[in-house]
């Protein structure tokens, strides 16, 4: 009896220990990989045609997705906020809420989530397939480093284009919110824009841009890492794609919190009165 009760906690401790060790190994490996990609990025940029092709895949092909998502999020935000605002006779301030929320939080996070879902998982699957079909080996044999040739263009494309995708998401979200607020709930057009203008400043735009830059970098590094570490077979490729999205999304939310807190501190340090 006593031996049974002694082995149960020991088993739990073993399992927790193993899990922690595995998590540390993955985080360590991811950090080393990120270091390799960043080093390769600063030492030499990829060829222009390779970068442009990757930018097209990452950016141009994602625009319709973020436009639709942004539009509906803005519309949903207006619908949900209207009831609360209407009870307090603050209907005219919907523009302020929608613009501020989208620029600071929802725009970057949504663009990041869409990029992680559409591009990140595709990247992981593509790189994983390349790995298991010996295309990485072929690159090395032909004098190209896989990290430099495959990961660097993807990192640059994500970092360069996600701020632009965020702007598209913001614009479509505000448009969607404006449509619902003015056409459905009768908020005056000038009141919507006047309050939006009063609340939103350059700092909000900068906040969105900084966040999206970090999100883009995180998505690219995580997706490439999963692809580079893909295990054999169709199951391995599927797992790499799923893990790329799940880990990227979790990291986006964690980064959003951390960057939001840091940027707030910086804001109040620079402009203590406001």
């Amino acid at each position: 009896m006593s031996s049974t009760s002694a082995t149960a906690p020991q088993g739990i401790i073993d399992a927790v220990g193993r899990l922690s060790l595995r998590a540390m190994q993955v985080v360590g490996d991811l950090t080393m990989f990120a270091g390799q990609v960043l080093t390769a990025t600063v030492t030499r940029w990829p060829r222009r045609d390779v970068l442009l092709t990757t930018c097209h895949q990452v950016g141009v092909e994602t625009v319709p997705v973020v436009m639709v998502t942004g539009l509906f999020i803005g519309m949903v935000l207006a619908v949900q906020a209207y009831n609360q605002f209407h009870q307090n006779h603050l209907d005219s301030r919907l523009g302020a809420l929608i613009s501020s929320t989208l620029l600071n939080e929802l725009g970057p996070v949504l663009a990041g989530a869409m990029l992680a879902g559409r591009v990140g998982s595709a990247m992981a699957a593509e790189l994983g397939t390349m790995r298991i079909t010996e295309q990485f080996d072929a690159l090395e044999v032909l004098g190209a480093q896989p990290v430099r040739h495959l990961a660097v263009p993807r990192l640059l494309a994500c970092c360069l284009l996600i701020p632009l995708l965020t702007i598209v998401t913001d614009a479509m979200g505000i448009l969607g919110g404006w449509m619902i607020a003015t056409k459905m709930f009768g908020v005056l057009n000038h009141a919507f824009w006047q309050h939006a203008e009063r609340v939103v400043g350059y700092w909000d735009l900068l906040t969105g841009a900084v966040k999206s830059l970090f999100f883009g970098g995180a998505i690219a590094v995580i997706a490439c890492h999963r692809g580079f570490r893909c295990s054999a077979g169709a199951e391995g490729v599927g797992q790499a794609a799923t893990q790329a999205f799940v880990i990227s999304f979790a990291v986006i939310l964690a980064l959003d919190f951390c960057l939001g807190s840091i940027l707030n501190v910086i804001y109040f340090y620079l402009w203590p009165v406001s």
Binding site: T129, E134, Q135, D137, A138, L139
Partner: peptide
């Protein structure tokens, strides 16, 4: 070296 891989390992893209 030249290397002919088992599945040819051509770059799909």
């Amino acid at each position: 070296f030249g290397f002919l891989f088992q599945g040819a390992a051509l770059f799909d893209s």
